[in-house]
């Protein structure tokens, strides 16, 4: 692999994909020249994109067949509209037939596209069902979250349905964005311009500490690639079992314990303190390696 340090956060969806998968292995489905664009944007005066903000296709990763979808966060916030959502759903349908080693979802999205809100909401529900169906068939879906829009709204739910969630510290994961909460509940509830606070509440280190993210990696495309390759190898050795009643009762107990333990918590520092970080206020400054070392020692 080349030694260039390419920021995953800064890269476009297409750059991320080309750095993530094996060289020259990517083949796009429904490519831009097919012009499968959104029919709903023009009436609201918004420009369209030839790929509707998501790139889907097949590729190899460390030699294993994978299906991939990469959302483009810079096109209308990576939002899910009718076509965008249908491309991801179609990819998941294909996974049931092709049975790749994994489906990689490079999420970078604020959720439903408001210009076509109803179509977007239904599409996300369809993606949720499709992810569940694919994983019930033993094919793991990995979410990679490290783009400028993070994974919010319905895409935040979809991300947490995935068997694995790989995040960088820069990545953010949640349901309602800080701006929405501030607009509805006021700046005292959530100051969306306090970037440090936003990251302590939604960022990769917080999500990894809670177990919402299963890997924390550096903000580099090769780091995401290495994590995805390692996860594929692990699932090849131990295939994904469909979620059982016992597993979901365990998860229920885990989430109930979290709600009880952190009943009044409003800042990531409280979570880090409970996780045994000596100085919770310094966690954002730790390198990924230092942070992972600490989690490994205490968990």
């Amino acid at each position: 692999m080349n030694g260039r340090r390419i920021s995953y956060f800064e890269a476009s969806a297409r750059m991320r994909l080309s750095g993530l998968v094996d060289a020259d292995s990517f083949s796009e489905f429904c490519p831009p020249e097919l012009r499968q664009t959104s029919p709903h944007l023009a009436q609201l005066g918004a420009p369209q994109a030839f790929d509707d903000g998501v790139v889907v296709g097949r590729a190899k990763l460390a030699g294993h067949a994978v299906l991939v979808a990469a959302q483009e966060g810079r096109f209308i916030g990576g939002s899910v509209g009718e076509v965008h959502g249908a491309k991801i759903r179609g990819l998941l349908d294909k996974a049931l037939v092709k049975r790749p080693a994994a489906v990689l979802l490079l999420a970078d999205s604020g959720g439903v596209r408001l210009h076509e809100a109803n179509a977007g909401l239904i599409a996300i529900s369809e993606i949720m069902r499709a992810v569940l169906r694919v994983q019930a068939a033993g094919i793991p879906v990995f979410a990679l979250v490290g783009g400028s829009c993070g994974a919010f709204g319905g895409m935040g739910i979809v991300t947490r349905l995935c068997a694995e969630v790989v995040m960088s510290e820069q990545g953010r994961l949640g349901l309602s964005g800080p701006e929405v909460i501030e607009t509805v509940r006021g700046v005292e509830e959530f100051d969306s311009r306090d970037r440090a606070l936003v990251w302590r509440v939604t960022g990769g280190k917080l999500r990894r500490t809670l177990g919402e993210a299963t890997r924390l990696v550096d903000d580099l495309i090769p780091a995401f690639r290495a994590a995805a390759a390692d996860l594929i190898a692990r699932y090849q050795a131990h295939p994904l079992a469909p979620a059982s009643l016992v597993a979901l009762l365990d998860e229920q107990a885990r989430l109930a314990a979290r709600s009880e333990r952190f009943a009044g918590a409003r800042d990531g520092r409280e979570i880090w303190q409970a996780a045994g970080f000596a100085d919770a206020s310094r966690v954002p400054e730790l390198s990924v390696a230092e942070f992972n070392l600490h989690l490994g020692e205490t968990s």
Binding site: L175, P178, V180, V184, R207, E212, F262, A265, R266
Partner: peptide, 9 residues
């Protein structure tokens, strides 16, 4: 819509 609910995921 609350910071607490978002924090816990």
């Amino acid at each position: 819509l609350s910071r607490h609910d978002e924090l816990l995921g």
